[in-house]
Design a protein around this nucleic acid. Structure first.
Lengths: 150, 150
DNA sequence: TTGCGTGCAAAGGTTTTGCATGGCA
DNA sequence: TGCCATGCAAAACCTTTGCACGCAA
């Protein structure tokens, strides 16, 4: 019989990510966060789970400023053609910016420069509002309660 | 005495990169390309050389779609605030797109969304002109004679 | 002669894979 | 019972570091 099994780990990771939708986690951060919730999840399992979410298009994968793979759960309803992905080089988080300039930019780059942009995969880098304020930053743990939109 | 030494490896790598300005190489690709030119350069040396170019601002470092570190030599005269960096997800090369929309976009994102973009670090992903034409692509070796502007 | 540069080998860190065991259906 | 899922350990990968030797100045 073919099909996926519902396991404790998957159920809990899914719940956790849904509760922290749009936040960004590396596999290790997720595993650690799960442990903090009282659910031990192996690193391998976290990797496999996050990869499967990406395959199902319910999460997005990207590399943060240090080259670490991080994942952002969006539940499948993120219409990523319509917003920019902006990543803060300081805290490592990624945000969505809903903006009418996205389509304008895509159109322009194709019409004038022949380049077919994939907005889902493109990431603008810079400083988010919080990190511009200075201070010592929040590290790149992705768990600081920030949500996915600027 | 403080100062840099001019060695055969540095001289040859510099020459090669200048001849292939704006093309993208990983350390391994560079080492292999040098070998093809009859100059053996250790992988470590290639890494160190490319990193030093980045420190001197004569090259830029980025990660391609597979997470590999790749370097683009631009000789220091690239005014990267004024163009987009667009990376082809198929061939892995990065191109510059001189475009007046860059500053417009930066201004807009800051004014309307509070995000301070760093155009030098930002990479738009998609398909370059060549790869849109289909065919089997050229692989990601960065040595296919393409130059850095679309 | 001095000390920077080189390249091998080894270490480092992240992600993936192999495999025996455990758990869902 | 039959598979799928899990997690440990090990492998795979890319990149960086340590160190002895070579070479530029």
């Amino acid at each position: 019989m073919r099909g996926e099994y519902q396991t404790r780990q998957k159920r809990e990771m899914t719940r956790f990510l849904a509760e922290h939708a749009m936040q960004c986690f590396s596999a290790e951060e997720l595993a650690r966060a799960m442990e903090a919730e009282g659910v031990r999840v192996g690193l391998t399992t976290a990797y496999r789970f996050l990869e499967s979410l990406c395959r199902q298009q319910t999460a997005r994968r990207y590399q943060d400023a240090r080259g670490l793979l991080r994942y952002q759960y969006h539940g499948g309803d993120a219409d990523c053609e319509k917003h920019f992905h902006v990543m803060c080089s300081r805290c490592g988080n990624m945000f969505h910016v809903d903006c009418e300039m996205v389509s304008e930019l895509s159109r322009h780059l194709y019409a004038e420069h022949g380049f077919r942009v994939d907005a889902r995969e493109s990431v603008l880098v810079g400083l988010c509002r919080d990190c511009q304020k200075g201070g010592d930053g929040h590290g790149a743990d992705g768990t600081s309660g920030r949500d996915g939109d600027l």
